[in-house]
Design a protein around this nucleic acid. Structure first.
Lengths: 98, 98
DNA sequence: TAAAGATATTCGAATTTTTGAATATATGGG
DNA sequence: CCCATATATTCAAAAATTCGAATATCTTTA
């Protein structure tokens, strides 16, 4: 696996990883892997304040990880590329941080 | 793949990811994937000041990613679990952050 | 259209991360 | 022992991240 990592790619990859380097955002995306979820449902699962959930969702949306759609009063989020998250969680499963 | 991500694991996984969410540290570990390297050689590759390289190496060492050994005047570093880094780089290759 | 429910935004403060500068430590050679 | 080279540490400042509080925006229904 001839892997070379030019400075430029490293910056991008690091920025990309940073998106998932927060427990709340990690919880959000791993929940979304199960399917489309509205904010209140995510919020029921994650015990932080609603605006904070929205803040994290906003970060994930503006960086292209998730997309949203209105459903009546609710806004639902889903992963744009579920495979990415699947691979990430698989990486954790395989390389358990002890 | 029945993936569930309890809060506790999320914290750990996020902390773990954070180790690699910095371009310099990513460069360091992907260079170490090629083999054992001393600080000055790493420093030749990465254009930041030497103390900064040592600071990042110290973070990686204290969290168990790398280990060091003295070789004369030089200190060499290597990955404790190269497979982890290999898998991480493979994750990037597969899921190119555009 | 007013009210209620659901979600988003803004802004500032607290915290964390990152870096530079200065300095310290360690090693081998002369 | 002194010097040069290689690396590490410390500390403070700068930068980035995170979060709470307050408030704004939508949407539906009465």
């Amino acid at each position: 696996m001839g892997v070379n990592m030019p400075r430029y790619d490293c910056q991008k990859s690091a920025d990309f990883l940073k998106l998932f380097s927060h427990p709340t955002r990690l919880l959000i995306v791993s929940e979304l892997l199960k399917g489309k979820r509205c904010v209140s449902r995510i919020n029921r699962l994650i015990k932080v304040r609603q605006p904070n959930i929205s803040q994290h969702l906003s970060i994930l949306r503006s960086s292209g990880i998730v997309e949203s759609s209105q459903k009546g009063k609710e806004v639902c989020y889903c992963l744009k590329k579920p495979k990415v998250i699947e691979d990430l969680l698989y990486f954790f499963k395989k390389n358990k941080p002890e």
